[in-house]
Write a protein that binds this DNA or RNA. Structure first.
Lengths: 144, 144
DNA sequence: TATTGTTATACTCTATAACTATA
DNA sequence: TATAGTTATAGAGTATAACAATA
């Protein structure tokens, strides 16, 4: 007797959760036209999250080839969103970090996406909202 | 008094849920190399979900321009994944639907993504799993 | 004339290969 | 010799503009 909610098998839960998550993610991606391409925005977000990174590390993290990262960083630099510093110990290496302007843009973009989501969250009941608080923590663990 | 879980404001919940959802969606996107580009796979999934559609409807749903959809559908047709039928009432219109082979590919791709997720869900505690069952339903509502 | 879909053409983004500079 | 990053070049994928067929 602990059966509550519709009888949900493991495979059924996976399927429903996958659909729900990918759809919401798509909606969120559509929010906030930043003027940057997805690649640029994603690279900027990674640099901001991880901290100063070499181009090689960044290319690996973003799953693109080094020449592509050269161009992505050049474009971000051109917009004044990141700056590079040559490593003193190994002068082949360039470390990239966000500028104040880059951080500002990123926080603005995140703010817009959060606002879109918050507006929808506001329409939920208290219990539903509590469920999502718990679910957010579980989903975070899940994607590690 | 009633303080459980970390003190979560509306904005905080939005931010955390956004991160959790977008990360998990990214991981899921990386699963299952179907041999199709993201555009082709997405168009095929839409046709399968919505049912027979004209190229114009499909272009709107996928948010691409009509000439791009002409090419996407041509590529899918070339792979034997969709078929087109000229509308009898209005012979300008072509309706596209998945072939049996297209449906099979799609179900295989979804199966792989679900399996990836199910493997992770299996490692959760019962209560956490129950939370996600409820959350899946709430998230579905949220993205409508 | 208006609309659906296509063809022609140009642009953007990414990759592979070859190169430069540092180690 | 090996490695970090760049430049040269080519290949996908998309868009805008002009066109063909049907209404």
């Amino acid at each position: 007797m602990t059966t509550t909610t519709p009888p949900t098998t493991e495979a059924d839960l996976a399927g429903r959760l996958r659909l729900a998550v990918t759809r919401l993610a798509r909606k969120l991606r559509q929010q906030s036209p930043s003027g940057l391409t997805p690649s640029l925005l994603s690279a900027l977000a990674t640099i901001d999250r991880v901290g100063p990174m070499s181009l090689k590390e960044l290319a690996a993290a973003e799953q693109v080839q080094p020449p592509s990262m050269t161009r992505i960083v050049a474009a971000l630099e051109n917009e004044g969103l990141v700056s590079r510093t040559i490593d003193a110990a190994d002068r082949r290496v360039a470390r990239v970090e966000p500028t104040a302007s880059g951080r500002r843009l990123l926080h603005q973009v995140h703010g817009q996406k959060n606002a879109y989501l918050a507006k929808r969250l506001n329409q939920l009941s208290g219990p539903d909202r509590d469920t999502l608080v718990k679910a957010a923590e579980i989903l975070e663990r899940l994607s590690r």
